[in-house]
C-alpha cells in the first residue's frame, strides 16, 4: 500500500489531515515533513513507495510552491500525485501552482471540511492503491 506524505509546518494541521485520511477508511502508512526541505529529502529516499503528497504552501526553509516546482522538473517525480492544502485560495495562486507543476493533482483551500479533503484525495488513493 502506497504511503502518504503530509507536508505542513503546523503539527496540528498534519495531525488533522492524517485523522481525516484514516476516518475516510484509508489505512495507508503516513509520513510527515515540517517543511519543504524535509519533504524533498523524504521523497528522494522513498518516492517509489509514495502514492500521494499533501503539501502546504507557506513553510519555512522551502515553501510548498518550491516543492511542487522542484518535483515537476525531475522526470521520475513529475507525475507523483501532489495536492496543495493551503490558505492561499485566490485564483492567481491556484494558477501559479498549476504553472509550477502542470501535473498538480488537486488544490484544497484552508479552512476545509473533512468531506472536501476526502473527495479530493479519494480518487487519487483509489488509483494508487
Amino acid at each position: 500500500m502506497k504511503k502518504i506524505l503530509v507536508v505542513d509546518d503546523s503539527s496540528v494541521q498534519r495531525k488533522m489531515i492524517i485523522q481525516i485520511i484514516k476516518s475516510a477508511g484509508f489505512s495507508n502508512p503516513t509520513l510527515e515533513a515540517e517543511d519543504g526541505v524535509k519533504a524533498i529529502e523524504i521523497i528522494g529516499n522513498d518516492f517509489q513507495d509514495i502514492g500521494l503528497v499533501l503539501c502546504d504552501w507557506n513553510m519555512p526553509n522551502m515553501t510548498g510552491i518550491e516543492v511542487v516546482g522542484a518535483l515537476a522538473k525531475i522526470p521520475p517525480l513529475a507525475t507523483l500525485p501532489v495536492v496543495m492544502v493551503t490558505t492561499e485560495g485566490t485564483e492567481a495562486k491556484i494558477s501559479e501552482a498549476k504553472r509550477a507543476n502542470p501535473n498538480l493533482a488537486g488544490y484544497v483551500t484552508k479552512p476545509f471540511t473533512p468531506d472536501r479533503l476526502k473527495e479530493t484525495i479519494s480518487p487519487i488513493l483509489a488509483k494508487a492503491n
Binding site: 503546523s10 493551503t86 490558505t87 492561499e88 485560495g89 483551500t109 484552508k110 479552512p111
Partner: peptide, 9 residues
C-alpha cells in the same frame, strides 16, 4: 493562519 488566509482571499 486560517482566519488571516480567508480575510486575505
Amino acid at each position: 493562519n486560517n482566519i488571516a488566509g480567508v480575510f486575505k482571499k
